[in-house]
Simulated assay, not measured.
Amino acid sequence: MSNKNTLKIGCHLSSSKGFYAMGQNALKINANTFQFFTRNPRGSRAKEMNLEDVERFLKFMQEHKIEKVLAHSPYTLNPCSADEKNRDFAKVTMLDDLTRMEYLPGNFYNFHPGNHVGQGIEAGIEQIISMLNSILKPEQTTTVLLETMSGKGTEIGSKFEELHQIMEGVKLSDKLGICLDTCHVFDAGYDIVNDLSGVLHEFDEIIGLDRLYAVHLNDSKNPIGSHKDRHETIGKGTIGMDAILSILTHPNLCHLPFYLETPNDLSGHKVEIEMIRTALQQN
């Protein structure tokens, strides 16, 4: 089981000052991993790679035992848009992101499967598969993670079956995995509060727990099945601290890296991380 010393936990950090600065901020809040946006989350531009900064950060990761970091695609990407130009934008942007990620070999890249915007789930899934088949490469070291979604609007990925269908259709499926978002799955209707083991059993039957690589650790502002996707600070939402601790210590999850996406600043995340580590030590 996870304890204060073995837990791999971090939060979403600003990438504006580079990788080394993110590593330093992670240490300041007692984190040993972190998530970051590859570029402006609401835009399209990405900064030039600073190779000196990358090299400095790779050494920093080794020295301070920073676990696998998770890059997050911008929210503007929609690989299953009804507009071909939007699909092309998603393809080009994600391909560029994956090329950049190879400067940090062996880490994760997370993306939202997208919104089918009225085309239907099957059409949307086929478009996502098509994009992934066109950009994934046998030689890449980055594992691309499909994020579990809450099911608001026409989102794809709120059901395990949809994620499984995408993975089954991709030729280089070994380059894919899942990032489970606790707020999203709860809002999607999976009862991780009262039946966590049952939910994980269902995940294993449909996708396979060996394909689960990371967890977005978030409380929720809304009740189960609300399909709202509104994150809350750990312990202050409808999931609650007891369920969060069950997630962190579950034998099928405790070895994974956990990334906070709660509505907090850096100091707030530091408080959350210390609260979680202390609670685990006391458990």
Rank of each mutant, 00 (worst) to 15 (best):
N3V: 10
G10N: 01
C11P: 05
H12R: 03
K17T: 09
K17F: 13
K17Q: 15
A21K: 14
Q24F: 05
A31K: 03
Q35R: 00
F36E: 03
F37R: 04
T38I: 07
G43I: 10
S44P: 07
R45W: 11
A46W: 05
A46V: 06
K47V: 04
M49A: 10
N50M: 02
L51G: 03
E52C: 01
V54K: 07
V54P: 02
R56G: 06
F57W: 08
K59L: 11
M61V: 15
M61K: 15
E63P: 05
H64C: 01
K65E: 15
K68S: 13
K68I: 12
K68V: 14
K68C: 09
V69P: 01
L70F: 11
A71N: 03
H72V: 00
P79Q: 02
A82V: 12
K85T: 11
D88T: 14
D88S: 13
F89W: 08
A90K: 07
L95R: 14
T99W: 00
R100A: 07
R100V: 00
M101Q: 12
F111Y: 15
N115M: 09
H116W: 06
G118A: 10
Q119F: 09
I125A: 08
E126C: 13
Q127I: 03
S134G: 02
L136R: 10
E139Y: 07
Q140A: 09
T142R: 06
V144Y: 04
L146N: 06
S150Q: 14
G151R: 07
G153C: 08
E155T: 10
F160V: 12
E162W: 12
H164Y: 15
Q165G: 09
Q165P: 09
I166P: 11
I166S: 12
M167T: 14
M167A: 13
E168Q: 15
V170I: 14
L172V: 11
K175H: 12
I178F: 06
D187S: 15
A188V: 13
Y190P: 04
G198W: 03
G198P: 02
V199G: 02
V199L: 02
H201Q: 14
F203N: 01
F203E: 02
G208D: 05
L209C: 08
D210E: 15
R211Q: 13
R211S: 11
L212V: 08
N218A: 06
P223W: 07
I224S: 11
S226F: 11
H227L: 04
H227P: 04
D229L: 11
R230W: 14
R230N: 14
R230G: 13
I234G: 07
G235C: 09
G237W: 01
I239T: 10
M241G: 01
L248N: 02
L248Y: 02
T249D: 01
T249I: 01
P251S: 00
L253C: 03
L256N: 07
L256F: 07
P257S: 04
P257L: 01
Y259I: 12
E261Q: 02
E261H: 01
N264P: 00
N264I: 04
D265A: 04
G268K: 07
K270H: 05
I273E: 05
E274R: 10
E274W: 00
M275R: 14
N283C: 11
